[in-house]
Computed example of a mutant assay.
Amino acid sequence: MSMSYVKDSPKSTVNELAKTALVAALYVTVTFVFAVISFGAVQLRLSEMFNYLALYNKRYIVGVTLGVALANFMSPTWLLDVPIGSMATLVALLISRALVKKIKNDILKMVITAIVFAVSMCAIAFQLNILLGFPFWATWLTAGIGELLSMTIGGMVIYALNKKIDLTK
């Protein structure tokens, strides 16, 4: 049996799909449980910890992006948050993976990813400015700080989890 057959087997495809769906479901669940702090100009979206999974395996890019899209339907600004927030997440995940591709140190990878995501909060500031008239720069600052805090807390969780479970698989 060749390795390519095993990799592309129906069992392998179902396994990949299940892991992707699990990450999306976890993202939505954590966002929902902490909904009161997950939306707005000042937010602490703890589900952002799942962004780090994409550093371990590219399959999670889809799972996290799908999770963000679904979770953002709970947002008071869902009309823009679903497409813009989801696209911002996808772009930030792709940029993060590209920037850390040759880096071996997991903590450095996480720091770079956290910074990329904090900067990407300009998309949230933009939509809150358009829909609710929030001041762009102040909103970007508060959303970015909240994102850095979320990613720091989440980074510690994912880093510890990766010590117990191989997240690359």
Rank of each mutant, 00 (worst) to 15 (best):
A92P: 01
L93F: 00
L94R: 03
I95M: 05
S96P: 02
S96A: 15
S96W: 03
A98S: 15
L99D: 11
V100G: 09
V100Q: 12
K101N: 15
K101W: 10
K102Y: 08
I103M: 12
I103R: 10
I103F: 02
K104A: 15
K104M: 08
N105T: 05
N105A: 07
N105P: 09
K109T: 01
I112P: 06
I112W: 07
I112A: 07
I115C: 07
I115Y: 01
I115L: 15
F117T: 07
F117L: 12
A118N: 05
V119L: 15
S120D: 10
S120L: 08
M121Q: 14
C122F: 13
C122Y: 12
C122K: 00
A123R: 05
A123F: 13
A123P: 10
I124L: 15
I124D: 11
Q127A: 07
Q127I: 13
Q127F: 09
L128F: 12
N129Q: 14
I130T: 11
L131D: 12
L131P: 04
L131W: 01
L132D: 14
L132Y: 10
F134L: 13
F134T: 14
F136S: 07
W137T: 11
W137H: 06
A138D: 11
A138H: 00
A138Y: 05
A138G: 03
A138E: 14
T139H: 02
T139G: 04
W140D: 06
G144H: 04
I145T: 00
I145L: 14
G146N: 04
G146A: 02
